[in-house]
Design a protein around this nucleic acid. Structure first.
Length: 601
RNA sequence: CGGGAUGUAGCGCAGUUUGGUAGCGCGUCGGCUUUGGGAGCCGAACGUCGCAGGUUCGAAUCCUGCCAUCCCGACCA
C-alpha cells in the first residue's frame, strides 16, 4: 500500500479522551476512532492487526479440531428465558442490550452465545457417536458496560472468539479443556505477548474449573497473585492463601471497654493498644435476590483482612435456595439511605458484634427477618479477641467463640493479598501484578444443557445432558494489550506477528529520481517476497515520515536516502532504533529472513 | 447508580470570575523558499461557543432544565 493513497491520519497531540498509553497511541496513530462511548471504528491499519490476531486464533483453534461457524448477534429472549438468564442479563445491572421489535418480540444483542449454541446442539446432536464436538466463532459481541473505558479494553462492542465444546462426560471435557489451555498459550505467545495463566472465578457464567490468560501490564484491570516458583497463580478474586498468624491476645478476661471514636480498625487498635489480628471485624452487606428478597448479611473477618466480595457472592448464590431464589442480583454495603429502608433502629456502625440482634431488622415483606451470619476462616481460631459491643463507643475484649459468641458457619471469604503465604507451599510468599484478561476458559458442565434440555443418547440408549465447556478470547482487547505491553516515547512497537505491515519503505525526498526508483523497486520486490510493505511516497519532509513510521510501529523501516548513490539503503529496527546501511540487493532476502524468523517463534 | 470534571474550528486549548458579538497552536487549502527527525515566510478557508428555555438593550460568559464525554468507585464469561 502507498501511504499517498491510504486513509492515513495521525495526530501530533494526545487526544483528550484517552488515558492509558495504548489507547492514546491507537488514536494518535490513526488505528481507531471513537464513534460512541465504548464503540470504535477499526480503521484500515487496525483491521489488518485484528485480522492477523484472528488468523492466529483460527489456526490454533483449527489445529485442535474445533470447527468455525458464525452465530447470530440478534437473539430471541425465549432462549435466554430457558436458561434463566434473561432477567439477570437485562434487569438491574444487566449487561445485555435488549430491544423490542415491531411485532412486540423481545430480542437481545448477544453478549455471549451459550444459549444459541446450546439450542443448536439440542437440535443437531443426537448420539454419543457425534461427540465430542467443538464449535467456535469470531464475532462482534455487545455488552452494555456500565463504564466503558480504555478504548478497546472495555468496549460495549468488541470482537471476541468464543468456542463451545460438547462431551459425553467430564473426562472428555477435561481433555478439550487441556487442549484449549495449550491452544491459548500458543495464541498469546504467537501474538508476541508476555502472559500468565491464572486460576479464575467462573462468575455469572457458572461451572467449575476456570482459567484466565493475563497479559501483564500496569494498566491491567485485574490483580494477579502468584508465587516466585510458579507453583501458584490466581486472579485475586479467586486466590486462596494462608494469612499471617494472629498475634497472641493481651486480653486475659472478658470485659466491656469504653472506646470512643474508634469506628475504624486502626483507631480501635490504637485505643486498645492491640493488633488488628486480635480483632473480629463485622461487615454488613445487603444482598438482593432475583425474587425480590433482600437479605442482610453479617460477615465476621479478622481485623487485618478484607472480605473477598466475589467469594461472598458465590456463597450467597449457593444459598439462594434458602430464600426461594435462583440468582443473586446485587450485593452492596448498605449506605444510610439503604439502611433506613429496613432498619428498625439506628445501627451501632463501627461497633457491631457477631451477635447483632435480629430485631434491628424491621418486619416487612421481601426482607429476610434474620441476619445471615457468616465467619471467615481467619476468625475461626481466634481466642480472647476484641469485637464490637453493639453499642456506639464500646467494644468487648477477651471474647471467645462458644463463651460469649456463637461461631457462625465458617466459609473462606478472605481476600488474599501480596505477602500472604501460598497454600501449596508455605515457604512461598504471594507476589502481586496487574494483568489484562485476554482469554478465559471454563468447564461449564451441564448447567445450560440441563436448563435447555440439550441431551444425547448414550451407548446404552439412555438420554443424558451434554457436558459443556466454553472458551473465550478477546481479539480486539488482545490487540490493544499488545500495544500496552510494547511501546516507547515515539509510538507503538508491534510484534512482527501482528503488525499491520512488516516493513515500510521511506523515501526522504520524492523529487530525487534515484530515491524514488530504488524505493519503488524495493516496495514491489518486498511485497512479492511476502514481506508486507508500505511505501511512504507522500509529499512530506523526511522528518515527518520518520515520526509517522515510528508512531504507527512498523517493525522494519527501509530508507532510500543518503547512501543511495553508493547503491545502499538504510534499514532501521523500530524496537531498538538500530540502523545499518545495506546493499540494495541484500534488503529483500534479509528482511524476508527476519520476518520468517519472527513468525516462526 | 454514587462522587468528581469537561463540552468553544478537524485535533489540543485560552476566553467564562468582572456580559459588549470569538482567539491561539497544530492540522487543512494556495504560493515561494527549504529538503534526514513533526520546516520558514506570505495568503486563505473552516464556529448553530453541547442542546433547549430564561434574564438582559446585548449571553460563550449569568440562571434553569436536559444531553454527551472522561476520571474514581460500584459493576464486569
Amino acid at each position: 500500500m502507498r501511504l499517498s493513497q491510504m486513509l492515513f491520519v495521525t495526530l501530533r497531540e494526545d487526544p483528550a479522551e484517552a488515558e492509558i498509553p495504548s489507547h492514546k497511541l491507537l488514536l494518535r496513530a490513526g488505528y481507531i476512532r471513537r464513534i460512541a462511548s465504548g464503540v470504535y471504528a477499526y480503521l484500515p491499519l487496525m483491521w489488518r492487526v485484528l485480522q492477523k490476531v484472528s488468523q492466529i486464533v483460527r489456526e490454533e483453534m483449527n489445529a485442535t479440531g474445533a470447527q468455525e461457524c458464525l452465530l447470530p448477534q440478534l437473539q430471541p429472549s425465549e432462549l435466554w428465558q430457558e436458561s434463566g438468564r434473561w432477567e439477570t442479563y437485562t434487569k438491574a445491572e444487566g449487561i445485555m442490550f435488549a430491544l423490542t421489535d415491531r411485532q412486540e418480540r423481545q430480542m437481545g444483542l448477544g453478549p455471549t452465545h451459550e444459549e444459541v449454541i446450546t439450542a443448536i446442539a439440542r437440535d443437531c446432536i443426537r448420539s454419543y457417536r457425534q461427540l465430542p464436538l467443538h464449535l467456535y466463532q469470531i464475532q462482534t459481541k455487545f455488552r452494555d458496560e456500565i463504564r466503558p473505558r480504555f478504548g478497546l479494553m472495555r468496549g460495549r462492542e468488541f470482537i471476541m472468539k468464543d468456542g463451545y465444546s460438547f462431551h459425553t462426560d467430564e473426562e472428555s471435557l477435561k481433555q478439550t479443556y487441556a487442549d484449549m489451555d495449550t491452544a491459548y498459550r500458543n495464541i498469546v505467545r504467537r501474538c508476541g505477548l508476555a502472559f500468565q495463566a491464572v486460576e479464575a472465578d467462573s462468575g455469572a457464567i457458572g461451572g467449575s474449573g476456570s482459567q484466565e490468560f493475563m497479559v501483564l501490564a500496569d494498566a491491567g484491570e485485574d490483580e494477579v497473585l502468584y508465587t516466585e516458583d510458579g507453583s501458584y497463580a490466581a486472579n485475586v478474586e479467586k486466590a486462596v492463601s494462608l494469612p499471617p498468624e494472629a498475634e497472641p491476645s493481651p486480653f486475659a478476661t472478658y470485659e466491656k471497654r469504653e472506646t470512643p471514636d474508634t469506628a475504624t480498625i486502626a483507631s480501635l487498635c490504637d485505643c486498645l493498644n492491640c493488633s488488628p489480628t486480635q480483632v473480629v471485624k463485622n461487615v454488613l452487606y445487603q444482598a438482593v435476590y432475583d425474587n425480590g428478597t433482600t437479605v442482610l448479611v453479617l460477615v465476621s473477618v479478622r481485623g487485618d483482612r478484607d472480605v473477598n466480595e466475589v467469594k461472598l457472592q458465590n456463597e450467597l448464590t449457593r444459598r439462594a435456595g434458602d430464600y426461594d431464589a435462583i440468582a443473586l442480583l446485587s450485593l452492596t454495603v448498605p449506605d444510610a439511605d439503604a439502611q433506613q429502608k429496613w432498619a428498625a433502629n439506628p445501627l451501632p456502625l463501627g461497633y457491631i458484634a457477631p451477635d447483632l440482634a435480629d430485631d434491628y431488622i424491621a418486619k416487612q415483606k421481601d426482607v429476610a427477618p434474620k441476619f445471615l451470619r457468616l465467619a471467615d476462616k481467619t476468625v475461626e481460631n481466634l481466642q480472647s479477641f476484641v469485637t464490637g459491643a453493639n453499642e456506639t463507643g464500646f467494644h468487648v475484649v477477651g471474647a471467645n467463640w462458644g463463651d460469649q459468641f456463637t461461631l457462625p458457619p465458617v466459609v473462606d471469604l478472605n481476600k488474599s493479598m501480596a505477602g500472604d503465604r501460598s497454600l501449596k507451599n508455605s515457604e512461598q510468599v504471594l507476589q502481586t501484578a496487574r494483568g489484562i484478561e485476554v482469554g478465559h476458559i471454563f468447564q461449564l458442565g451441564t448447567k445450560y444443557s440441563e436448563a435447555m434440555g440439550a441431551t444425547y443418547t448414550d451407548k446404552h440408549g439412555k438420554d443424558k445432558p451434554l457436558v459443556m465447556g466454553c472458551y473465550g478470547i478477546g481479539v480486539s482487547r488482545l490487540a490493544q494489550a499488545a500495544v500496552e505491553q510494547s511501546y516507547d516515547k515515539d509510538g507503538i512497537i508491534w510484534p512482527v506477528e501482528i503488525a499491520p505491515y512488516h516493513a515500510i519503505v521511506t523515501v526522504p525526498n520524492i523529487n530525487t529520481k534515484e530515491q524514488m526508483e530504488a524505493a519503488e523497486k524495493l516496495y514491489a520486490e518486498l511485497n512479492a517476497a511476502g514481506v508486507e510493505t508500505l511505501l511512504d511516497d507522500r509529499k512530506e519532509r523526511a522528518g515527518v515520515k520518520f515520526k509517522d513510521a515510528d508512531l504507527i510501529g512498523i517493525p522494519y523501516r527501509v530508507v532510500t536516502g543518503r547512501s543511495i548513490s553508493e547503491g545502499k539503503v538504510e534499514v532501521v529496527d523500530r524496537a531498538t532504533h538500530e540502523s545499518r546501511d545495506m546493499a540494495i540487493a541484500d534488503v529483500v532476502p534479509t528482511l524476508k529472513q527476519w520476518v520468517e524468523e519472527a513468525l516462526a517463534r
